[in-house]
Design a protein around this nucleic acid. Structure first.
Lengths: 109, 109
DNA sequence: TTAATACTTAACCAAAAGGTTGAATGACGG
DNA sequence: CCGTCATTCAACCTTTTGGTTAAGTATTAA
């Protein structure tokens, strides 16, 4: 069970990277432009982008000398789905428990 | 913007901790019982539980000499909500773009 | 009161994360 | 061809992470 979720959640666990994702929501961006609002070296941002790439949350495509960063929604959907399934099991358990209570006639009527 | 989301996502970024959360879905558990299925020292599990506590994904309550671990769903809901809002903005942008296209009369009729 | 049980803490370790600076690579514009 | 722009790489540093073992602290059971 050494899932990709490790990488996705870990990537999301840094506010700089979450901000980058929000920026990319607007439009695809070059590395330099991604780095611009941050008080951090370009190399640092480059690393963050590499992590986001590795997790599948973005893809990078080089055209000429600029490397474009593009959001990739379906990685996040995987994580979202994991949480959703978690929520569903949570509900299932609650329902199962209620059924149990009913079968035990602890709940009235 | 140094959110709690840092802690929540980081906590979720480890498969041991995700497994623990799944176990706690079933029922509240004592630390020793949480540790049992893992090939890892009790101290290590204790640390994992501390991280889960800090993130708010679980709470721990000591009764007698046993410390019970209890799932806390609403921390995860925060993370889930972040993702959801992300998805909504994504959609909004798409809609805005389509509106733009329509206003530009690029789309037929 | 003593021994076992249920944890946590402390000290340690190796590896990873997040940052820096400076040099290297590679494409473009004149 | 030369300089500049876009980006990465390499070396380095500090802090955090994920694990270990051994000792310490409560609580309970005999």
């Amino acid at each position: 069970m050494a899932y990709d979720l490790d990488n996705i959640f870990a990537a999301l666990g840094d506010s700089t990277r979450r901000e980058i994702l929000f920026m990319l929501l607007e439009d695809d961006m070059a590395v330099t432009d991604v780095a611009e609002p941050f008080d951090m070296s370009l190399a640092a941002i480059s690393k963050h982008l590499r992590i986001l790439s590795k997790s599948g949350l973005i893809v990078q495509e080089k055209r000429g000398r600029v490397k474009w960063c593009k959001l990739q929604v379906h990685a996040m959907r995987d994580a979202s789905l994991w949480m959703e399934s978690f929520g569903q099991i949570e509900q299932m358990n609650l329902e199962a428990f209620e059924k149990f209570l009913q079968s035990e006639e602890i709940l009235e009527k």
